[in-house]
């Protein structure tokens, strides 16, 4: 049980896929224009991430080592397509907002990286913990960026005005704001880590 939590926590801070490992950034930067989109993208990502980890770890005994990569790709692509179909059927508005970034989950380096680097070497329970941990890490990073950009860019959070007199700077909803927002998050995380390690 202790191991389970160790792997779960690992993905949230120490190996946060977005802010520390610096992979899978494309969807994070592109979709984080509003908090709502960020949450939608985070959930779609988590679905694929967790199921891919579960499947790869449970299929471990029957996957021949030499052709493991193509098999990972097929597994991930299958779950991505399922998510794509489900969102397009039940959440058409979200589907429009996320656009091409739903099918692109398949080439998200995080998922294939965890399949190869973690799930292929660990059992089902540990892989589940890792999948959930990485997903939470991804979600908090993308939602935090969404918060920064939506608030600074349009002055709202989840479409609600927070401070009346605040004059938003549109540039934060535009592409440059995404780069600045993620730089800010990374800087803050680094600063916090330095404070902690100095103690």
């Amino acid at each position: 049980m202790k191991e389970f939590f160790k792997y779960l926590i690992n993905g949230i801070f120490k190996e946060n896929p977005v802010l520390v490992l610096m992979i899978g950034l494309c969807s994070v930067l592109a979709v984080s224009t509003t908090v709502e989109n960020a949450i939608g993208m985070g959930l779609a990502f988590s679905f694929v991430m967790i199921f891919s980890n579960l499947f790869v770890s449970s299929l471990r005994p029957i996957i021949p080592n030499n052709i493991r990569i193509p098999i990972f790709i097929v597994v991930i692509a299958t779950f991505t397509t399922i998510v794509d179909l489900i969102i397009s059927a039940y959440f058409p508005e979200l589907y429009k907002a996320l656009g091409i970034f739903i099918p692109l989950i398949v080439v998200n380096c995080i998922i294939i990286g965890r399949a190869e680097g973690f799930a292929y070497k660990h059992n089902v329970v540990e892989s589940l913990a890792d999948g959930v941990g990485i997903s939470i890490g991804y979600i908090w990073a993308i939602v935090a960026l969404g918060l920064i950009r939506e608030f600074l860019g349009s002055g709202t959070v989840l479409d609600k005005v927070i401070i009346q007199s605040f004059n938003p700077a549109k540039v934060f909803s535009m592409p440059p704001g995404a780069f600045w927002g993620i730089a800010l998050l990374m800087g803050i995380l680094k600063w916090v880590q330095q404070k902690i390690s100095r103690r």
């Binding site: 610096m22 535009m174 440059p176 780069f179 600045w180 730089a183 990374m186 800087g187 803050i188 680094k190």
Partner: peptide, 16 residues
Amino acid sequence: FWQGYPIVFITAGLLA
């Protein structure tokens, strides 16, 4: 704490 990736992203933002 801006060293490394944060400054790269700020640069990228300016280029954007």
